[in-house]
Computed example of a mutant assay.
Amino acid sequence: MSLQMKLVAITLDCPDPPALAAFYQQATDLELHPKSDADFAGLNGEHGLLIGFQRVDDYRPPSWPDQIVPQQLHICFKVDEDLDVAETRLLELGAGKPDHQPHGDKARVLTDPVGHPFCISLR
């Protein structure tokens, strides 16, 4: 008999949980978790999935693609609009864009304000 597990949370390390939660909240329109504070902030995602952000002292951002500091996690998002429009909006919110783009025109790799890489692609 196989074990049935349901993913309920993904948590990212960061230096400032409320700030990183604000970036992802603006990018996704997800609702801020009511128990967020200076050490842990969360966003309530679809189907009960919580995206959490926890404070880590001496946080070191991932380096991508070289992996000198491992990326630890890579999140992918689907967007409804043109990739150029979505990318521009995310860059305005504080995302970065690495020079290395392995997916051609099908997806874009960006980094959140503290260096976690994530992809956007069309639905």
Score class of each variant (00 low, 15 high):
P62L: 05
P102K: 03
G42Q: 01
L30E: 03
A107R: 02
L32P: 02
G42E: 00
A95K: 04
H47F: 12
R89K: 12
N44I: 15
A41E: 01
E87K: 11
D82V: 05
P102L: 06
A22T: 11
V85T: 14
H103G: 08
E92H: 10
D84N: 15
P70E: 07
D66V: 07
L91V: 06
L91Q: 05
E81A: 15
Q101T: 07
A38L: 12
V85A: 14
Q54A: 14
E87S: 13
K35L: 15
R108N: 03
A38E: 15
L90W: 03
P102V: 04
A21G: 04
E92R: 08
V79D: 01
E31H: 07
Q54I: 13
P70A: 13
E81I: 11
V56S: 06
D84C: 10
P70T: 09
L83D: 03
H103K: 04
P34V: 08
A95C: 11
A95R: 02
K35P: 00
Q26K: 14
R60N: 08
G94K: 01
A41R: 00
C76H: 11
A27S: 04
Q54Y: 13
L83H: 02
Q71F: 14
H103R: 05
V79N: 02
H103C: 12
E81K: 07
D99N: 08
L83I: 08
G104P: 01
Q72D: 09
V79C: 15
F77T: 00
D37I: 06
D105M: 08
D80S: 14
K106V: 09
A41V: 05
P62D: 03
A22V: 04
H33A: 15
D84F: 10
